[in-house]
């Protein structure tokens, strides 16, 4: 299954990079969303995929029944998702603000804003 995931994630990265290379700022935002999801999936898959064995311990037990999925990667991704939302909001508002100042949707016209 990891192999199928690898192909999908590679495709997602390609899609995200392609969108971020576009000049339209809205496409940049879409690229960002795709990229953050792709990155989360990358970490998730790299830790190994396990079916039907969440890292939960039953009441009274000390260990989960049998092998369990990697909880560390899950904790990592969980916070990454929430932060990703915050960063996305920040980026979107920043872009919107830049659009208002420059008055153009074209990334190329934002070239001289930092000088």
């Amino acid at each position: 299954m990891e192999i199928a995931m690898a192909f999908v994630i590679g495709g997602l990265y390609a899609a995200a990079i392609y969108m971020m290379l576009r000049r339209s700022i809205v496409k940049l935002v879409i690229g960002l969303v795709l990229l953050s999801n792709a990155a989360n999936l990358l970490i998730f898959t790299a830790a190994g995929l396990t079916r039907g064995a969440p890292p939960l311990v039953n009441v009274g037990d000390v260990l989960p029944p049998g092998p369990s999925a990697d909880p560390l990667a899950q904790a990592l991704i969980l916070t990454a998702i929430v932060i990703g939302f915050g960063v996305l909001a920040f980026a979107v508002v920043l872009i919107h603000r830049a659009y208002e100042v420059v008055g153009a949707d074209d990334m190329d016209k934002m070239k001289d804003t930092d000088t």
Partner: peptide, 16 residues
Amino acid sequence: AMAGGGMVMLLLLSTH
């Protein structure tokens, strides 16, 4: 984009 995506894919396949 393909180069970037392909790199990630190979990376993932090799870590597996």
